[in-house]
Design a protein around this nucleic acid. Structure first.
Lengths: 222, 222
DNA sequence: GGTAGTTTTCTTACATGTACAGAAACTTAC
DNA sequence: GTAAGTTTCTGTACATGTAAGAAAACTACC
C-alpha cells in the first residue's frame, strides 16, 4: 500500500475494493454488532475478500478505526449556532465536539491519536482558537489554550468511558472500592471525610463546569 | 482466581508462584527489554511456569499492567515538600504525580483506568483535595475539582505519549500534516494563520501553564 | 488408608492482527 | 505477440491473549 487512495493510474491489477468500501463495511459491522465484532476477518467476509487484501487499503486496524472516527465525525458533527460572545463561543464549540465524541465511546483509543481529528472537526478548532484570540490571547497562547482544552476533553472521555467499560465486564469490587475501604483517617482525613460520597460525586457529569473553569483560567492568564 | 492474594488457608494445592513474584518478574522484563517484550509466555518462562498459571494470580494482562503501575508508583512516587499556600500545594502535588507518570510512558492505557491509581498516590490526592478545601471550596466542589485536574493530567499524558508513539513507528506524513497542508484560508483563517507554527507550538510543554489556569478557574468559581 | 473437596497448575485449542511470499491481472515497451 | 513492470489479491504462517477442562497436590473427614 505505497500510496493509499493514490490517483488511479490504471496501472497494475485493478483493485476490487476501495478504501471507502472498507470503511463503509466496517461501519455497517460496528453499527450492527458493535465494535467488538469488528475483526479483519469478519470485515473481509463482509465485502467478499480476504483479510490481507484489506491491508492494501488501510495500513492497520488502528488506522481503520481512525478512518471510522473520521467518517463518524463527518456524518454527525454538525456546526451549531455559536454565540457572539467569544468566551461562550469557545465553550459551545468545545462542548459540541465533546458531546459527539461522548456519544461514540468505541474508539476511545483513537481519539488519543492526535490533537485534531477529522477534517470536519477543524471548523470547531478554528472557532475555539478564534474565540481565544478574540478574548485577547496571543496566537501562541491561543494554540496552547486549545491544547489544554483538548487535553481536558480527551481525558474526560477516556477516563470516563474506560472506567465505565471496566465496571460492566467486572463484578468484583473496584480497586477504588477496596482502597477506600481501608483508609487511614489519621493520615488521609480529607479522603476519609468524602469517602462515602466519592462514588456519587464522581458519577456526576461536571464536564462543563470544569471546562468553564479551565477557559476562565486561560483567559485570566492573559 | 476467586480470591487473589487471599489469606493463605493452606488448603488445596500449594501455589508455586505468587502475585508478587509475577509482578516482580514482569518488572524485570519491562526494565530490561521494554514493555513490548512483556508477553504472558515470556513472563511465564521468566518465572519457570506456564502462561495459564499466571491467570490465577492476575486476572488479565491489563490487570498485570495496573499492578505494574502500582508497583512503579510505590517505588518512585516520593512525597515532596509541599508549600504552605494551599493553591500552590495543589499545583505541586499534581505536578509530582504528572512527572512520575510522564516518566513511565508505557502503560498509557492503564492510567485511564480510574481516577486514582495506587495506594501511594492517595496521599497526593489527599493533598490536592485538602488544598482545594483550604481555598474555600466545598467538599463537593473539591472532589469535582480534583476530577477536572485528573482529566486534564491524564489527557495530557495520554495524548502526548500516544502521539509520540505514532510518530516513531511511522514515517509517512501525519494526518495533521496532511490536513494542515490543505487548509482553506477563507474558511479557516485562524488555523491558516498559525499553521506553520502549529508543530512547534504544540511541541512545547505547557502542562504547568494549563494546570495553573485550570486551578485558577476552579478557585474563581467558588 | 480412602474418599471428597479445594486450590493451583498444565495441556490443548481458538480467535485475532498481521508479516511474508508469491500469484493474478493489468499496462507499457518492444 | 512477448517481456518487463506495477499493483492488487490470496494462502500460509506466526505470535499473542486467554477460554475450557483435565490433572496435580494438597487438607479434612471417615
Amino acid at each position: 500500500m505505497p500510496q493509499p487512495s493514490a490517483p488511479r493510474t490504471s496501472l497494475g491489477r485493478p483493485p476490487r475494493i476501495s478504501r471507502e468500501e472498507v470503511v463503509a463495511a466496517a461501519r455497517r459491522i460496528v453499527d450492527a454488532d458493535g465494535v467488538n465484532r469488528l475483526t479483519m476477518r469478519r470485515l473481509a467476509a463482509e465485502i467478499g475478500s480476504t483479510p490481507m487484501a484489506l491491508y492494501h487499503h488501510v495500513r492497520s486496524k488502528d488506522e481503520l478505526l481512525v478512518l471510522l472516527l473520521d467518517d463518524y465525525a463527518a456524518r454527525t458533527l454538525h456546526r451549531p449556532e455559536l454565540p457572539e460572545e467569544p468566551r461562550e463561543r469557545v465553550i459551545v464549540a468545545t462542548d459540541a465536539i465533546h458531546s459527539a465524541l461522548a456519544d461514540c465511546p468505541w474508539i476511545v483509543d483513537v481519539l488519543t491519536a492526535d490533537d485534531l481529528l477529522s477534517t470536519s472537526a477543524l471548523w470547531f478548532v478554528e472557532q475555539i482558537i478564534d474565540g481565544l484570540l478574540a478574548c485577547g490571547l496571543t496566537p501562541r497562547q491561543a494554540v496552547h489554550g486549545y491544547r489544554a482544552i483538548w487535553y481536558y476533553t480527551a481525558g474526560e472521555i477516556v477516563v470516563r468511558t474506560t472506567a465505565a467499560r471496566r465496571r460492566t465486564d467486572d463484578d468484583r469490587p473496584t480497586y477504588r472500592e477496596r482502597v477506600f475501604g481501608e483508609l487511614d483517617p489519621s493520615e488521609l482525613p480529607r479522603l476519609e471525610q468524602v469517602a462515602d460520597r466519592w462514588a456519587s460525586l464522581t458519577a456526576e457529569d461536571t464536564y462543563l463546569d470544569g471546562l468553564r473553569a479551565l477557559v476562565d483560567g486561560l483567559l485570566a492568564s492573559r
